[in-house]
Amino acid sequence: MTKILNVRNLEKSYTSGSRKLTVLHDISFDIERQETFSIVGPSGSGKTTLLGLCAGLDRPNSGSIELCGTELSTLTEDQRAVLRNQKVGFVFQDFQLLPTLTALENVAVPLELQGAKNAATVAKELLEKVGLGDRFDHYPSQLSGGEQQRVAVARAFSNRPEILFADEPTGNLDAETGETVIKLLFELNREAGTTLVIVTHDLELANMTQRVLRLKGGKILEPDAQN
Rank of each mutant, 00 (worst) to 15 (best):
M1G: 13
T2Y: 08
I4Y: 11
I4V: 15
L5C: 08
N6T: 13
V7Q: 08
S13Q: 13
S13E: 14
G17V: 05
G17W: 06
K20I: 13
T22A: 13
D26P: 02
D26N: 15
D30G: 02
D30L: 00
D30H: 09
F37N: 01
I39N: 01
I39F: 03
V40N: 05
G41F: 08
G41M: 06
P42D: 13
P42F: 01
S43I: 04
S43P: 02
S43E: 03
G44F: 09
G44R: 06
S45L: 02
T49G: 05
G56K: 03
R59N: 04
P60W: 03
N61T: 06
G63Y: 03
G69D: 03
S73C: 02
T74Y: 00
L75E: 07
T76N: 07
E77L: 11
D78P: 00
R80V: 01
R80P: 00
V82N: 06
L83N: 01
R84A: 08
Q86R: 15
K87D: 12
K87I: 00
G89I: 09
G89M: 09
F90R: 08
V91L: 13
D94K: 05
L98W: 12
T100H: 13
L101S: 06
T102I: 09
A103K: 08
E105C: 04
N106P: 07
A108N: 09
V109C: 04
E112R: 15
L113G: 08
Q114F: 00
G115A: 11
K117L: 13
N118G: 09
A120C: 01
V122W: 11
V130E: 14
V130H: 12
G131N: 10
Y139D: 08
P140W: 12
S141Y: 11
S141R: 14
S144P: 08
G146K: 10
Q148K: 15
Q149V: 12
Q149M: 12
V151Y: 05
R155L: 12
R155N: 10
N159I: 03
N159Q: 14
E162R: 02
D167T: 03
D167E: 04
E168W: 00
E168Y: 01
P169D: 06
T170D: 05
G171T: 01
G171H: 01
D174E: 04
E176C: 00
G178Q: 07
G178E: 10
V181N: 08
L185V: 05
L188G: 02
N189P: 03
A192K: 07
T194V: 13
T200R: 10
T200I: 10
L205D: 11
M208I: 02
V212T: 15
L213R: 09
L213Y: 06
R214S: 15
G217D: 15
G217Y: 10
G217Q: 11
G218I: 06
K219V: 05
I220M: 14
L221F: 08
D224E: 13
A225Q: 08
Q226L: 14
Q226R: 11
N227T: 02
N227L: 14
